[in-house]
Design a protein around this nucleic acid. Structure first.
Lengths: 261, 261
DNA sequence: CTTGTTAAATGGTTAGACCTTTGAGACTCG
DNA sequence: CGAGTCTCAAAGGTCTAACCATTTAACAAG
């Protein structure tokens, strides 16, 4: 943990541009940008930090809350406020996108298309860069799919893990995050679709094609295989979902996309 | 504006799952999902809304602030709190991604790559779907680039508008938003690069190739032209930026991506 | 009818107090 | 002496009550 006790905090008041709490946000962001606050660090107690910044506690809390909302900070009652730990694939919160989907009336076709574009991109990159370990993991997940053709829920677990492994193999954490963001929103939909298990065998087969293309380091083939897979998945979903236009599921507060390391 | 005065608000207290303010967030989100709150609507005054929901004003404000942080609500002192207007291209706030970049030490190579993947995708879709008007706009912007070969700043304006037009022509607002999110972060970098105007003519030429491919409804050509353009741009940037690894610019609070309708 | 003034409405901020959860040190018992 | 339990300080979560700053619109004067 970094040493936070000394005088790294500037008081706020001088000619502040916007509101006080905005200034607090800027201060905290700057600390993070500068590296004074590193992932996993604990912030000083609110009471102390408020005094250091020269603002009241509610105002400080407003700033903290804003940063918590975008997934940068995390507060635990009784424990403290922490800079979010950066282990595993960094994940952007998908609730903003979800809200925007409601607000603008995004169609699920758009969502599928966006996911397809992102998955194609990562598949292509994965074909260029996947390590042996990652390819082995992919192979295992494909095998897992074939092994759970009669267990849709288990199948979906392997499915998700396969896609996340491909994303990780792309070596691009930004694309991975964006992909997860979109995929998370479609997840609730998928879990319903997959339960009415139509063509799990065909789906597993298509995943295997993707895997093979990646193993052969053939980006174009990987992109095409992934594209074909997702087009098929979308068609299956559309066939089973007569009219429902927007995948307008409900709450589920936190950032999803759990399930795989 | 929707009628908000009647009894659409449920009180909070019964067996709340998480914290009170989280419950407030859920309530507000649900109103938006249900369509009780539509883009542009004004929320009831905080004091009233707090009473309706059965929480104190600070707690309500905490919830509002969280939703404001992700770009769903917007408060203006003296005026009120509004559901963000959904005109033009919906834009996700890029500050979360920016923070995450600092937190995880994203390289600018990753950013460029992500942008390239997204731009290729939208270019391909635009080639399939661009309307006559949109293609006309693209042509105008390309012409504008050629007309401002000696004015780097003006050139950049046309550059940005061209890319946003292509994104709009893709017909996929999600990909457009994601692209803007990434592009916004790279913008500060670009404005510096373009000022040292190296190959504006060549750049304009490459934009013209993209335009032509779109006009010919040739997705593959559009993807390739866009890819070539961005690869070139990245190389130019790398050549002029010796060591700087992360495009770690500073504040700029609001969501950027302005400049073009 | 225009314009300047004023007052009400509304979000922003502060202060201080109390509650709930957490986590670690102290304590007791085996 | 060790393991389990207890207690309590620390920290975030919430509330009340007030005051400040800004915006909006009504209203009066010209």
């Amino acid at each position: 943990m970094t040493d936070l006790s000394n005088e790294m905090f500037k008081t706020i008041d001088p000619e502040r541009r916007g509101t006080t709490s905005e200034e607090v946000i800027s201060q905290l962001r700057e600390m993070i940008h500068r590296g004074d606050l590193r992932p996993g660090d604990r912030l000083p107690p609110e009471r102390d930090l408020a005094k250091m910044l020269g603002v009241s506690r509610p105002t400080l809390r407003a700033g903290i809350r804003s940063l918590a909302a975008v997934g940068v900070l995390q507060s635990r009652q009784g424990a403290g406020t922490f800079v979010v730990k950066a282990d595993g694939p960094p994940s952007l919160d998908s609730s903003p996108l979800r809200l925007m989907a409601s607000l603008h009336g995004f169609t699920s076709a758009e969502m599928f298309e966006a996911r397809q574009a992102l998955e194609m991109a990562v598949a292509g990159l994965a074909a260029e860069r996947a390590t042996g370990d990652q390819m082995a993991t992919m192979a295992e997940e494909v095998a897992g799919m074939f092994a759970s053709l009669d267990d849709p829920e288990q199948f979906l677990v392997h499915d998700v893990r396969f896609h996340q492994t491909v994303a990780a193999a792309s070596g691009n954490r930004i694309l991975t995050s964006l992909m997860n963001m979109v995929a998370t929103i479609l997840f609730d939909t998928r879990i319903k679709t997959v339960k009415r298990a139509t063509d799990l065998k065909e789906s597993a087969e298509m995943h295997r094609h993707v895997y093979r293309a990646i193993r052969e380091h053939d980006p174009e083939a990987a992109r095409h295989a992934m594209s074909a897979h997702l087009s098929k998945a979308q068609k299956a979903w559309e066939a089973e979902t007569p009219e429902a236009d927007g995948p307008d599921s409900n709450n589920s507060e936190g950032n999803g996309a759990g399930l795989a390391p």
